[in-house]
Design a protein around this nucleic acid. Structure first.
Lengths: 186, 186
DNA sequence: TCATTTTCGTACTATTCGGTATTTTATGCC
DNA sequence: GGCATAAAATACCGAATAGTACGAAAATGA
């Protein structure tokens, strides 16, 4: 059982329930390793959760950024985001990043810093995507790109969180579509 | 120190931080009573949090329902809701009900049931409000009242939660206004 | 004033948490 | 085989959790 396998176990556990509800003990048991082994590898709970978040970012979040950079235009990209948030099977139990972000105050300093870093990267990606749409003339009047990016990010987070809480994906899709219609009703 | 004073202390503590982060010990200390006294009065932590939620509902949430029933028309009522969510000083540290709802799985059975009950009442109130607007002809095509009610409720919850996490009230207002503009852009 | 009952708080479970000291086990080398 | 070394697990620590047993104190009634 190497470090990456442990991270996969931790990621699955954190992702499936909630980082705050999964103890180090539970992860050791699930991974079949002893507690000292885990501490040798990751130093602390904070170290483990940070490493887990890093792995999640490169394995899962990176794909969202690909969608944002696809350059297929405002409507098509928004549609792809809606698909991802409301129907992608990986978001069935929510998004580990959003779970960590919403329980930020319970995280250790390393992990919290990483959450904020990823949040900023995400905001920048949303803003770049919307700026491109604006440059292409697809943009409602009287809305700044920054405000739009924040809005877009929060709406997607809301949709994924709602799915995680057991909401019907069709309802989530309807709500997210309605929320994002503000970008296309010129 | 009677039961209602204890509930006020608990409400403040739960509301200000998060129900999951406030222990029975801490509440006893803040209220200046002993733990057995608290258990005599409320039976269990679940009993205390349920009673606290009840008190919160009748003292704070009830006013939101008043706004919804004001009958001042779609635009004016939405504006009042936006004011409430983004500027009312009582929502500065968020809404206790939404905090409990988002951490539902950590609550005891009594409190959880009460949360679901209040949630249903809220949905019904939103739906009644929107139905009235629809009857008055103020309604976008192709949107069901139920979906609109759910959307409205989630957007307000999101706005208040964002405020609790330290977001600038002006930004929150802008986002909520944008989100609710789907109801008025006919 | 004394006895009874009710109220209340100190002091205690039992468990779980993150984290670690110590001992046991496996490994490599001669 | 015998021995040094590295790795891993057992068993523990102190703190914090929800919840309670039991004795002290205070109010009540005669």
């Amino acid at each position: 059982m190497n470090a990456e396998q442990v991270l996969d176990v931790a990621m699955k556990a954190y992702w499936q329930s909630d980082p705050a509800d999964v103890s180090i003990n539970a992860i050791c048991q699930m991974a079949g390793i002893s507690k000292p082994s885990l501490y040798r590898e990751f130093g602390s709970e904070d170290g483990l959760s940070r490493a887990t978040l890093d792995r999640y970012a490169e394995q899962v979040l990176s794909e969202m950024f690909v969608v944002l950079r696809s350059g297929t235009g405002l409507r098509a990209t928004l549609a792809a985001l809606i698909d991802f948030a409301s129907d992608d099977p990986r978001m069935e139990t929510g998004c580990l990043f959003y779970k960590m972000r919403s329980g930020k105050h319970r995280l250790g300093p390393e992990t919290r810093a990483r959450v904020e870093e990823i949040d900023a990267v995400g905001q920048a990606a949303y803003a770049a995507f919307l700026q491109a749409a604006r440059d292409a003339g697809e943009w409602p009047e009287g809305l700044s790109v920054e405000a739009g990016a924040k809005y877009l990010g929060e709406q997607i987070a809301l949709a994924i969180t709602m799915r995680a809480s057991g909401e019907d994906p069709a309802d989530v899709r309807e709500m997210l579509t309605l929320a994002l219609s503000v970008f296309t009703k010129l």
